[in-house]
């Protein structure tokens, strides 16, 4: 069972919710934590894993043998990401735009294309208490994160409860994360901004037909617009966490809320039991 923790808006508490949820679940289940926010992974700051293995992660990009290439243009025509330009006497590739689908090599009638690996980041695995930990780190300046996210998700073990910390927003990196999940927890704040971005995230979730529920962070600030939205749209609310300065203080020291604030633990236990109630864990 893979549970993605996502939100339309950045800074709503995805990492806070997912790290604390992982800790609470690890009391009763074998838990694996995947930090899929490869552009800015930060769960390690709270789970403090001991990194036990590290490997380079890459994406396969085309290398064209110009002595065989006839400049027929089929590869360039195929490439959805416009990473190939075919001219009368040469074919130019732009590896930084390539998503590594391998389609160009498949459509080349001359078999002039071989795929070579281009490094885009690293994947680190480790252990945090009882929690198995995996995260990806995208190289600085790299524009394409989805191939690395897929490789992080590739580490998911079928016999674990897998918590996936998703990147913010509703664009490709989030889609790439949610596609690998069985259900999603959407973290939202009860504010105008929070509701706006939750609405976007819900549109995406519906598109992917993913079972989901909402976790309201700092539920006692703002207003009831997120609650009303969930009620009107039949979206279950799986938990609420109060605004508490002690949680922020713990966060700033790299500590989990459940370790620092006893009342917070109850919020995550109720979220965990909502997720368990859905079965399949």
């Amino acid at each position: 069972m893979k549970i993605a923790v996502a939100s339309g808006k950045g800074g709503t508490g995805k990492t806070t919710i997912s790290t604390n949820l992982a800790r609470v679940l690890s009391g009763s289940h074998k838990v694996q934590y995947l930090d899929c926010d490869v552009e800015e992974p930060n769960a390690h700051l709270f789970l403090h894993p001991q990194i036990t293995s590290r490997r380079d992660a890459g994406v396969l990009v085309p290398q064209i043998d110009e002595s065989i290439c006839t400049s027929c243009g089929k590869c360039a025509e195929f490439c959805y990401f416009n990473a190939i330009a075919c001219l009368a006497n040469t074919t130019i590739t732009f590896h930084e735009l390539c998503h590594g689908c391998g389609g160009c090599a498949m459509v080349c009638p001359e078999r002039a294309i071989t795929e070579i690996e281009r490094p885009i980041g690293v994947i680190e695995c480790g252990i945090s208490g009882e929690i198995e930990f995996v995260h990806g780190r995208l190289n600085i300046g790299e524009a394409i994160s989805v191939p690395l996210i897929r490789q992080v998700i590739g580490h998911a073990r079928p016999d674990r409860v897998v918590i996936m910390d998703a990147p913010p927003g509703t664009a490709c990196p989030v889609v790439g994360t949610l596609k690998g999940a069985d259900k999603a927890v959407l973290v939202a704040e009860p504010t105008a901004f929070g509701l706006h971005d939750l609405t976007l995230a819900m549109d995406l979730i519906r598109e992917l037909s993913l079972p989901c529920g909402v976790f309201i962070n700092q539920f006692d600030i703002g207003d009831d617009r997120v609650e009303r939205f969930c009620e009107a749209n039949d979206i279950p609310i799986w938990g609420r966490l109060a605004h508490d300065r002690r949680i922020a203080e713990a966060y700033s020291r790299g500590m989990l809320a459940v370790d620092a604030v006893p009342e917070a633990a109850a919020s995550f236990e109720s979220l965990a039991s909502e997720l368990l109630r859905g079965g399949g864990l």
Partner: peptide, 11 residues
């Protein structure tokens, strides 16, 4: 185009 518009325009 999703990306690489300049590349394809040049081609």
């Amino acid at each position: 185009a999703v990306q690489g518009a300049g590349i394809q325009t040049a081609q």
